[in-house]
């Protein structure tokens, strides 16, 4: 899929660090990518690779202290979000960029009704009366497929099932027709059949509203279903970026390849899974050079001393490896 127009969001060399007692955690280190209108970008990685921190950095919601965005740019519609005032940021959050989270059980405030929480967002960003806001809220709940929306809008979150709560979250996020949605593992805590429902819903709404979606997950199956382009993150870096077909057909970076060979498949029998040796590195003292080199089967002397370049193997297929396209 090609997106001719200017990117909606462009991250340039974003760096976010956490200043803890044990040392500086370099959670996001030099991350750049582009996201266009109507595009779904999948951000894949294991826990602790910095994918959630990247998304929080875009909205400037990194908990400060100890976290701090120490460098780079977040260009959204031609403005650098990092330069904006807190007040302007508040107008963007929930209005132009919305976010949904992993655990629908904890991401809604348990002591307020769903109505209160959805209407809060509408009234905050739009100049509407209480009644209009309520109608809009009910309409949103119907849109995300909650039965009996008019009655259920008065319920408290704990009365909804996990899947329904995630729908409520989506309704809330979409209440101001955002240009971009950040979805942080929105289906991880859900059952498979419910996950299918929610994925379907996100995909439909994204197409209807022509939204840009930054979809964060660790599940390679979900990415294959929903994403147009994929960025693979490892230890704070984006190690590979390309479109969704290439990543599964011709993965280039050793980490992407290893990751793909290590997952059990439902559609075919694999006699033995591939294994990435070792564990995810500690980001206070990350490995020198390429951060993947201690676990990489192809690592050489060069990998442990020099930071690899971003190599554009093919048009818009980047690999963060010294030996890109040669392995």
């Amino acid at each position: 899929m090609t997106f001719a127009e200017e990117p909606l969001l462009e991250l340039e060399h974003l760096k976010t660090q956490f200043f803890t007692e044990d040392g500086v955690v370099k959670a996001v280190d030099d991350v750049s990518f582009k996201l266009h209108r109507g595009e779904v970008l999948g951000l894949v990685g294991e826990s602790g690779c910095g994918k959630t921190i990247t998304s929080l950095s875009i909205l400037k919601l990194v908990p400060t202290p100890p976290g701090k965005i120490v460098g780079g740019k977040v260009m959204f519609n031609g403005e650098d979000l990092l330069e904006l005032s807190e007040e302007r940021m508040r107008q963007i959050r929930g209005n132009e960029i919305s976010m949904i989270f992993q655990d629908p059980m904890t991401s809604l405030n348990p002591v307020f009704t769903v109505k209160n929480q959805i209407l809060e967002n509408i009234k905050l960003h739009q100049d509407v009366s209480e009644d209009e806001a309520l109608e809009k809220g009910i309409e949103l709940m119907q849109m995300v497929g909650i039965p009996e929306a008019r009655r259920r809008i008065n319920d408290y979150p704990h009365l909804f099932s996990g899947g329904m709560r995630q729908r409520v979250m989506i309704a809330m996020a979409l209440s101001c027709n955002p240009q971009m949605l950040i979805a942080d593992e929105p289906t991880t805590a859900l059952d498979v059949t419910i996950q299918a429902q929610v994925l379907d819903l996100i995909k439909d709404l994204q197409e209807d509203l022509n939204m840009a979606v930054l979809y964060i997950t660790h599940n390679l199956g979900v990415i294959a279903e929903i994403a147009d382009n994929v960025a693979v993150m490892y230890a704070g870096n984006i190690v590979e970026y390309t479109d969704v077909n290439t990543i599964y057909d011709k993965p280039d970076h050793p980490y992407t390849r290893a990751l793909l060979s290590s997952i059990p498949r439902m559609d075919k029998k694999i006699s033995r899974l591939g294994v990435i040796r070792g564990t995810v590195p500690n980001l206070i003292t990350p490995p020198s050079g390429c951060r993947f080199h201690p676990r990489c089967p192809y690592a050489t002397e060069k990998c442990s001393t020099q930071v690899p370049p971003y190599v554009e193997i093919e048009p818009s297929h980047f690999s963060f490896c010294h030996y890109a396209a040669t392995l």
């Binding site: 498979v192 059949t193 996950q195 299918a196 994925l199 599940n219 390679l220 199956g221 979900v222 990415i223 294959a224 279903e225 969704v244 077909n245 599964y248 793909l260 997952i263 498949r265 439902m266 559609d267």
Partner: peptide, 8 residues
């Protein structure tokens, strides 16, 4: 319902 890690 299970997503397959293969876009094809």
């Amino acid at each position: 319902a299970v997503p397959i890690p293969d876009p094809k």
